[in-house]
């Protein structure tokens, strides 16, 4: 009995699984996303942001675990609920907010809006607005990594709705056949727009879809950065060893509706509150304090810094210019003198 206790103590003392820096980074990444999204919702209500707006609130632990478990050289292709992933990748709050405002200082110069951030510098292939279209694309990005002989992988993310697209099955099949370095992540937030997972298929455990292709496939708790990190690190090691793709179904929850126009009447308050009780930001903060990983002062400093950063991002976006209408013709073709039909 005493031996076991001693062993436990010594394990804990020697090397904690995650460092102080990791916890503080997770906290910062998640808080940045939460505050960014809250600010974007406010700006939307003020009609400063138009079009579609799908916020990431509730799913932040996935972005946090993703950034700590993977390398900067790894590529990421994802869906349209993507501000959080872009921010975690290191794209600045200024550039992301300006993009939502449709300003020329945005990450894609006002050409993409909420659904389509991308940045080559950050190896962020970006957000796709067609449900599931990024699944074969991310697979092709991975094919190019294999072709070039790197040990990078492509994280290909999609929601539970996209798991019902045929593109998933075609891509899974080829990725396994060719042992491509692709990490598939289904962010299962339980609802494809307003349709719950159990209403879309006989198979509610989405990770089981990978088993039909003999792909290593697991379910992961998506409300904790620790569990996300562990699962991703393990999957990434498998992929980098040349063993082919891996599929993680990360179970998460979005606190808000599908988009800003969705009041979310298809789910109960109790369900929402159950997830809010497990809020990853709140829980991480509690853990940091209760386990003495960092001080309240350090946490408060992060809160202040994020608050200032997001406020500055909104001002930056507001003060930036819209792109010129004449820039409509830029970036349709690489060919500079493409003869558009202008009449």
């Amino acid at each position: 009995m005493s031996t076991v206790t001693a062993k436990k103590r010594s394990t804990k003392k020697s090397t904690p699984e995650f460092s102080k820096d990791t916890y503080l980074n997770w906290y910062e990444v998640m808080l940045r996303i939460r505050k960014f999204e809250e600010a974007s919702l406010k700006a939307y209500s003020q009609q400063k942001i138009r079009g579609f707006l799908h916020v990431y609130i509730g799913q932040e632990a996935i972005a946090a675990g993703l950034v700590s478990a993977l390398r900067k050289e790894d590529k990421i292709a994802t869906a349209y609920r993507q501000h959080g992933i872009a921010l975690s990748r290191g794209i600045s709050s200024d550039k992301c907010m300006a993009e939502l405002f449709g300003k020329v200082t945005g990450v894609v110069k006002g050409k993409g809006g909420s659904m389509h951030f991308s940045s080559k510098e950050h190896n962020y292939i970006g957000g796709n607005g067609i449900v599931g279209a990024q699944i074969p694309i991310g697979t092709g990005v991975a094919l190019a990594e294999q072709y070039k002989g790197t040990d990078n992988l492509c994280v290909t993310m999609f929601g539970d709705g996209a798991a019902r697209q045929g593109a998933l099955h075609e891509a899974f099949n080829m990725a396994m056949t060719w042992k491509l370095p692709v990490l598939y992540i289904c962010e299962n937030n339980k609802y494809a727009m307003g349709t719950s997972v159990e209403r879309t298929s006989n198979v509610e455990d989405i990770h089981k879809l990978g088993l039909g292709y003999d792909m290593p496939s697991e379910a992961v708790d998506g409300m904790s950065p620790e569990s996300v990190h562990r699962a991703l690190a393990k999957a990434a090691e498998h992929i980098r060893a040349g063993k082919g793709p891996y599929f993680l179904e990360i179970k998460t929850y979005r606190y808000r509706g599908h988009s800003v126009s969705d009041p979310g009447t298809y789910r109960t308050k109790d369900e929402l509150n159950d997830y809010k009780d497990r809020d990853p930001i709140k829980e991480t903060e509690e853990k940091i304090i209760s386990e003495g990983i960092a001080t309240q002062k350090e946490i408060d400093n992060i809160k202040e810094a994020i608050k200032a950063e997001i406020a500055a991002a909104v001002i930056f976006a507001e003060n930036s210019d819209y792109p010129l209408g004449s820039e409509l013709y830029d970036h349709n073709y690489v060919q500079k003198d493409y003869p558009f039909i202008m009449d």
């Binding site: 389509h116 991308s118 940045s119 080559k120 970036h331």
Partner: peptide
């Protein structure tokens, strides 16, 4: 190309 403002 358009969605990435010319980057990809």
């Amino acid at each position: 190309l358009a969605q990435s403002a010319g980057e990809y």
